[in-house]
Design a protein around this nucleic acid. Structure first.
Lengths: 252, 252
DNA sequence: AGTGTTTATCGTCAGGCAGACGACTATGAT
DNA sequence: ATCATAGTCGTCTGCCTGACGATAAACACT
């Protein structure tokens, strides 16, 4: 028995993506320039409609692939390379958040290693990685800074929520490795934490913490000097996902 | 410029509620019996359609009030009594999760103190508080137990996610006080933790932890003997929301 | 009145972990 | 050769937690 269509208002459902990466020691998010009204020419988060017969996670993964070429790292089959972490963030459904009609957006959070270059999607005339601090300035969610127009719709709120989720989640999970290439050094992982939290961490205590947590890192045997200085051991992400005790974020 | 209606499939959007409370030393959830097909006669989580012009949080608060009479405790105006904690949980949008049509449900989590009795909503022929362990048995999310039919739709998954959220969130926030009446003793708060986590905690270490965390509890000056034994100091929830360092959940 | 039971509250002690920081190592640059 | 850079190993101190003893204040019996 189908529902009586007059019993509920129809909604459009979209997925929006907060895609985060670490570039040049700062936390950056993927932004696309809107080619259509409303907010034409303004920066926005990538996203699109959920299609018929499509799961929310599928829709988010499809949008992510369209915008970045990233495949979602499936925990069940961790053989793939260049995989990103993807998780649902929150849902935004204020009436009036889109002036055209009632749109409910299921925001997702994606964490990716540093990528060569963003490629613009179909309906976006441009795309770029921008420091989150810059995107959130002017919006009341960040410190004042560059004079960039605020993000379209309620995307500044969504981005702020995604950044906060990422900041807190790397405390008690091994998620920070999602920002790293498949093989990385302890120093590279530390620079991820430092960029995401905007703090400086003691290299010695950090090294003790991450190498002492069972299952967090597994050595690959190789070394690298790509950061300069003494060669560093290379690691892959271990199977552990929960960090107990957590990595403590220093006080402000 | 409105959207082209043919550009996206129409969805129905609902809110579903995971309302948790602690009754007789066990964590219970509000369940309503379905009066209509599909899943007629089965237990389900309370919920309903989001109305035109209504925010998601408003819709959840309205459903909560309809089902339980609870008002949402607004952090901005903490003068109200009998207020419950309400937060968005996650969104479930599998095609086919409702056999009638495409429905996206924005699940919310509510935490309430022990209530006198549930009152059935309009379209539910019955309502009750049931131990979550009982509701999740038979569903693969809990231990085997009573022979109760599984919850309707994907509500077992939603309930399991809500319970897990509550279990982890009381670790690092003062949210456990949302399960308590406005004034409560340290022992009552401890029994909340014990019920939610299904563990036994050392009363002396627990007392030291919660009274030693600044801003967690503020003494009201009164005492009570409603639990028997030596009179206990009464407290109200303090302003602190984050617990740092967190309350540690004992190992299994 | 005394005794037992229950619950609350205060103390003590040992082990683990984090922050601060010294020391040493191995590379490339000048 | 010397310096700068980055990585790695140790040490020490203070805080927090888990385990548990001891005391306090109520009630229920006898």
């Amino acid at each position: 028995m189908p529902y009586d269509p007059s019993a509920f208002p129809p909604f459009a459902v979209t997925v929006d993506l907060v895609v985060l990466t670490v570039r040049r020691h700062s936390l950056c998010a993927l932004a696309v320039r809107r080619g259509e009204s409303p907010f034409q020419g303004r920066w926005a988060l990538p996203g699109g409609f959920v299609r018929d017969g499509e799961d929310l996670a599928q829709a988010a993964a499809r949008e992510l692939a369209e915008e970045t070429g990233l495949c979602v790292h499936d925990p069940a089959a961790p053989t793939q390379d260049n995989g990103a972490h993807l998780e649902q963030l929150a849902t935004y459904g204020d009436p009036g958040r889109d002036p055209r009609m009632r749109v409910v957006s299921v925001a997702h959070l994606a964490l990716a290693p540093d990528l060569p270059a963003p490629r613009a999607g179909g309906d976006a005339s441009n795309a770029r990685w921008a420091p989150v601090e810059e995107l959130l300035a002017q919006s009341g969610y960040g410190h004042a800074g560059e004079a960039v127009a605020p993000l379209a719709f309620d995307h500044a709120q969504i981005l702020a929520d995604g950044v906060e989720r990422a900041r807190s989640k790397i405390e008690y999970s091994s998620l920070a490795t999602a920002f790293c290439p498949p093989e990385f050094t302890v120093g590279e992982l530390r620079r991820v934490y430092e960029a995401v939290w905007s703090v400086a961490l003691d290299p010695r205590n950090f090294h003790r913490k991450v190498t002492g947590t069972p299952g967090f890192l597994v050595p690959t045997g190789g070394t690298t000097t790509r950061q300069g200085g003494r060669p560093a051991q290379l690691f892959r992400a271990g199977g552990a996902t929960l960090l107990n005790p957590p990595m403590l974020r220093p006080e402000v």
